[in-house]
């Protein structure tokens, strides 16, 4: 398998992971308005996450550039980190960020974690592949 094909496969996985992240966050946002009403509100934060994930997924899909992979990795991390943190730690409200502690597992949470983890891991691979491609281009 050549690098071009590898990169396309990796890009597809990252885009799919971010799309899953976006859809789940959008679907759960109304419930989060009830669970975390303080400050900015959980509903707003989840919709913002969904919007950013969707936009970055489209950017990566269209460009396949290294900076898009970096952005995709950061967005995936920005969702994966908090969902794990708020699952295991009862973090109180911090400034405008409401408490979003939720020690229970749900299908939506598991699916989003899988999507975000895949997006993050494959984004790292994508950065490496596109870095090598850029280096090859410079050498040529």
């Amino acid at each position: 398998m050549d690098d071009r094909t590898k990169e396309l496969l990796v890009r597809g996985v990252v885009v799919l992971g971010l799309a899953v992240d976006a859809v789940i966050h959008l679907g759960v946002a109304p419930a989060m308005e009830l669970a975390a009403p303080d400050g900015l509100g959980g509903g707003f934060l989840f919709r913002a996450q969904a919007t950013v994930a969707g936009l970055v997924a489209v950017l990566l899909l269209v460009t396949g550039r290294r900076w898009a992979y970096v952005l995709a990795g950061l967005v995936a991390l920005s969702a994966l980190g908090p969902v794990l943190l708020y699952h295991f730690v009862d973090v109180p409200a911090i400034g405008p960020t409401p408490s979003m502690y939720d020690p229970l597992w749900s299908p939506e949470k598991v699916i989003s974690i899988v999507g975000e983890a895949l997006a993050l891991a494959f984004a790292v691979v994508g950065v490496r592949l596109t870095s090598r491609r850029a280096a090859d281009t410079v050498r040529a």
Partner: peptide
């Protein structure tokens, strides 16, 4: 609890659906 909850009947809240904040 420090987060909001609801008491929602399993018929999609048709019988009762009460939200209660933290």
């Amino acid at each position: 609890d420090g987060v909001g909850h609801t008491v929602t009947s399993d018929d999609d809240g048709a019988t009762f659906d009460v939200a209660v904040g933290p």
